[in-house]
């Protein structure tokens, strides 16, 4: 019989998330001691601004991990998108253009980003599903390729001089305090939640990630599932590229290299299995909060430089993985 949804069972089933929440609370408490400016509105808005880029990537990577693969090309896609869009804006929407052209340009920018993301993701997906290239190698290679393409477009320099009104429009704070990035992130999260939980895509994705041979025999289209996962991931990366472009109002070929690693670590931290078959949207979101809190925390700690955050992530991730290993093993032994 189905287990009753009592509070005790709920806690047992979701105990991993509770650990994450506790970790987040501990970090917040630590921040209270470290810096006065952490719990201010300005800081929270700034944190929300920063987190949207890699959070979008993390959501996308979550899908690829669940499919039994990974996406290491998110940063390449983002940068390439930013470069292409920057070139477009500089040519077609210079500072003195009319409002009409600007509006059209903004719409074109968004559509272009979606198309670029879809194309990149499909390419990734095809390499992995049709050619059988291991996902790590395939996306590492395409990351190199997209970054290279980005350099071709920018000719290796930083492209600047983007229409200021565009920048304003894409860095606006909705309702005065919600950065547009967060709104986009929320929309993306809702979209992903819908795709994974409301359509059959989510459950199929988990099955394909667990045993693609069995799903093949069962009639599930493995190739399409994998391509779709990568398409969504690359589209989210492209959108992140648009946000990065606006926020930095310029485009360079190597922005945010560390985002890729960060995004993957966030997913694992949040409970998405590295071997595939499992995803966790709340876990990933919690992971994003934790990582952002750490990033800001490290930057506010006197005497710490920004590289320290890598240290903290790594230690945190490895500790969580090891603790979780002992936690699940203990459960099996105690029976």
């Amino acid at each position: 019989m189905k287990e009753k949804t009592t509070f005790k069972n709920f806690v047992k089933k979701n105990s991993y998330y509770l650990y994450l929440i506790i970790a987040l609370i501990i970090i917040f408490i630590a921040m209270a001691f470290i810096s006065d400016s952490f719990f201010t509105v300005t800081n929270f808005i700034s944190m929300m601004e920063q987190m949207s880029d890699y959070a979008l990537m993390a959501l996308g990577i979550m899908l690829c991990l669940c499919a039994g693969g990974v996406d290491l090309s998110t940063v390449g896609v983002a940068n390439m998108t930013a470069a292409i869009l920057a070139t477009y804006l500089i040519r077609f929407a210079p500072d003195d253009c009319s409002t009409g052209i600007l509006v059209i340009s903004c719409i074109v920018v968004v559509i272009l980003a979606l198309i670029i993301g879809a194309v990149c993701g499909t390419f990734n997906g095809l390499l992995i599903s049709k050619l059988g290239i291991p996902p790590m190698l395939a996306t590492m290679s395409t990351n190199y390729l997209y970054t290279g393409l980005c350099m071709v477009i920018t000719k290796g320099v930083s492209l600047s001089g983007i229409n200021e009104r565009f920048v304003e429009a894409f860095t606006v704070n909705i309702f005065g305090f919600l950065p547009i990035g967060i709104v986009v992130l929320i929309l993306a999260a809702v979209f992903i939640w819908y795709e994974l939980k409301k359509t059959s895509f989510g459950v199929k994705l988990c099955m394909v990630g667990t045993n693609p041979t069995a799903t093949y025999f069962a009639g599930i289209n493995n190739d399409w599932i994998k391509i779709k996962a990568h398409m969504i991931s690359s589209i989210l990366s492209a959108v992140a590229g648009v946000l990065m472009l606006a926020r930095l109002s310029s485009s360079r070929a190597d922005y945010g290299k560390a985002y890729s690693t960060q995004a993957i670590l966030i997913c694992i931290l949040g409970g998405t299995a590295a071997i595939g078959g499992k995803f966790s949207i709340p876990g990933t979101i919690l992971g994003v909060f934790i990582v952002q809190a750490i990033t800001t925390g490290v930057s506010m700690t006197p005497g710490a430089n920004s590289y320290m955050k890598n240290l903290v992530y790594a230690v945190l991730l490895l500790s969580v993985m090891i603790l979780d290993y002992y936690r699940t093993n203990r459960k099996v032994k105690a029976k």
């Binding site: 670590l265 890598n310 240290l311 992530y313 790594a314 991730l317 490895l318």
Partner: peptide, 12 residues
């Protein structure tokens, strides 16, 4: 995943 984490650790 592990070497991704240790890479961040070593750079850090």
């Amino acid at each position: 995943i592990v070497t991704l984490a240790t890479e961040a650790l070593f750079w850090g």
